[in-house]
Design a protein around this nucleic acid. Structure first.
Length: 213
DNA sequence: CTCCCGATAT
DNA sequence: ATATCAGGAG
């Protein structure tokens, strides 16, 4: 593993551990994470602040009128799919899992709207069970720019990162890469001048070699 | 690969 | 105007 990258990022973002998605229990985190697909956490937190007052349990989502639930999450994108996913997840949680959000990767990915990324968020942040690395678009972009990953599919990048770092660093690793992706290593106009990793970044060295920036 | 399909930054 | 945002399903 590249221990130095972790050291530099930990120094840069000492307070990052934990999701930025506000939640008080596994159901709330599951709902928030489903809503967060292709959506900023700021927007999700705005919606869930009201949502969690109206829907207090898996039963509330399961028994809700679907169109009403969709209307309650209207300001996030893909709200029609997400509304259906949330309701179906909660129905499965009640029918198949005794009312509790399952706490294993194997069971979580059976829920509609839940793949490895969402499952990893819930496992890591609600149950403290780290079964993989959270690979969102920030983690994908940053780890590819740095040269930590060469693949282009989520699952393959996750595997590369799992091989490159020990399990006890997986949770902090994804939090750090996400923070760095949001603040410095942005999709557009990355702030390479402010980046503490630029001397070990493939993307930066390539840009500099080509005379851009 | 296409569809889903709102808010925000540039 | 449009690219992009803590993706996943068919």
């Amino acid at each position: 593993m590249d221990a130095h990258i972790l050291t530099l990022l930990k120094r840069e973002y000492p307070e990052v551990r934990g999701t930025a998605l506000r939640h008080r229990n596994p159901v709330e985190l599951l709902v928030a994470t489903i809503l967060s697909a292709q959506t900023t956490d700021v927007q999700v937190n705005k919606v869930t602040e009201k949502l969690f007052k109206k829907y207090r349990s898996a039963e509330d989502y399961a028994g809700a009128d679907l169109e009403e639930l969709r209307n309650d999450i209207r300001s996030v994108n893909f709200y029609r799919n997400k509304g259906r996913f949330i309701q179906e997840c909660c129905r499965m949680i009640l029918n198949d899992y005794g009312g509790s959000v399952p706490d294993s990767m194997e069971e979580l990915v059976k829920l509609p709207g839940v793949n490895r990324k969402t499952a990893n968020v819930v496992l890591t942040n609600a149950f403290g069970k780290v079964e993989g690395v959270v690979v969102d678009t920030h983690v994908m972009r940053v780890s590819r720019r740095l040269g930590l990953a060469t693949e282009s599919k989520r699952e393959k990048i996750e595997r590369e990162l799992m091989n490159a770092f020990p399990r006890e660093e997986w949770a902090i690793l994804s939090d750090l890469l996400i923070a760095h992706g949001r603040r410095v290593c942005r999709a557009r106009n990355p702030r390479c001048e402010e980046c503490v990793l630029r001397e070990r970044c493939l993307h930066y060295r390539k840009m500099r070699a080509e005379g851009k920036e």
